[in-house]
């Protein structure tokens, strides 16, 4: 379990990094936290010719609060997302998922951008960014573009980033008044990839659901938004008996959109069942939290 040969490049600045990516294209791999890439190297499942280490680049781990969004550098470590009081306040959903990303030690190294660019369909951060309706900034020598979370995750381990593009920033919609969030996952062990997970962002207004987004993870080839399920909640007071019906219906619709895989650990049927269970749980969490904020 030793990595195959490659050439290691440590660009001095962003510009140089983009040159390297432009030059090597598909043959290059970006090395961020290394939590996913280095195991693949050690098992020789990945064989990049060039490894572009972006850990030393200045300015890629900064946090800016803007109008309704927080922008974090791609190299922000997951442990900062978990621990920073500022981020916990602004991004409660991201903070809620953070303890489930790997383990204490790996979160020190693992980055927000790395996790999004990796596009693992079981990743917590892709699910959260999608649920919040955030986006990322991709830069290349050709210029820069924003990619909405909806468009970023193409397939398991495949993102919309072009080979010459570097994900440099993540734009997170900030929790506003009346919003509440819920996150839940089921894994076999603490810190494992989830068998299924769900996230919910919900705004209460006048005692009813005004806006809601429900995201599902690990149950398709990419994280999903369960739009129909969300639609079934809008306008309902979830505390009443009608609310129970709405939540049950939303959970049913969520389970229906999931496209889970069978594997060693769990069946399609079980994962689909979990989608319903977890959806209900996160909707309730978000409803409660939205109520507290109001």
């Amino acid at each position: 379990m030793k990595p195959p040969p490659f050439r290691y490049v440590r660009p001095a600045d962003l510009g140089e990094a983009l040159v390297v990516l432009a030059t090597h294209g598909d043959e290059a791999k970006v090395l961020a936290g290394g939590c996913s890439l280095v195991p693949m190297l050690n098992m020789r499942l990945a064989r990049p010719e060039v490894l572009v280490d972006v850990n030393g680049l200045d300015g890629l781990a900064e946090v800016h609060a803007g109008d309704g969004t927080v922008t974090t550098g791609a190299m922000l470590r997951q442990s900062v997302l978990e621990r920073s009081p500022q981020l916990r306040g602004a991004l409660p959903l991201a903070a809620a998922c953070a303890p489930h990303i790997g383990h204490f030690v790996t979160r020190n190294r693992g980055t927000v951008g790395g996790s999004l660019a990796h596009a693992d369909a079981r990743g917590e951060l892709p699910l959260v960014l999608l649920t919040l309706g955030g986006s990322v900034l991709a830069q290349s020598q050709r210029g820069q573009r924003a990619i909405a979370a909806e468009d970023l995750f193409v397939y398991h381990f495949t993102s919309a980033l072009e080979p010459d593009e570097l994900l440099t920033e993540v734009r997170w919609p900030v929790a506003g008044p009346g919003w509440g969030y819920g996150f839940a996952e089921m894994a076999q062990r603490h810190g494992d990839y989830a068998l299924a997970m769900a996230a919910c962002a919900l705004r209460r207004h006048d005692g009813a659901v005004a806006e809601v987004r429900l995201g599902l993870g690990a149950v398709a080839d990419r994280p999903l938004l369960a739009a129909d399920a969300a639609g079934a909640l809008v306008g309902h007071d979830l505390d009443g008996p009608a609310g129970d019906v709405a939540v049950t219906e939303a959970a049913r619709l969520a389970a229906a959109v999931a496209r889970p895989f069978d594997d060693l650990h769990a069946s399609v049927a079980y994962r689909r069942h979990l989608v319903g269970v977890l959806s209900e749980r996160v909707i309730r969490q978000a409803w409660l939290a939205a109520g507290e904020g109001a």
Binding site: M1, K2, P3, Y8, R10, G34, C35, V38, P39, N42, M43, L51, D53, S79, H103, F104, V105, T106, N108, R109
Partner: peptide, 25 residues
């Protein structure tokens, strides 16, 4: 050597990290 067992954990600039997931360079 794939980041799971933690027995290689060291501190890199003060933060715990898996030495098997880092290159010496």
């Amino acid at each position: 050597e794939h980041g799971v067992c933690g027995s290689c954990t060291v501190h890199l600039d003060g933060a715990a990290a898996r030495a098997c997931l880092l290159l010496a360079v």
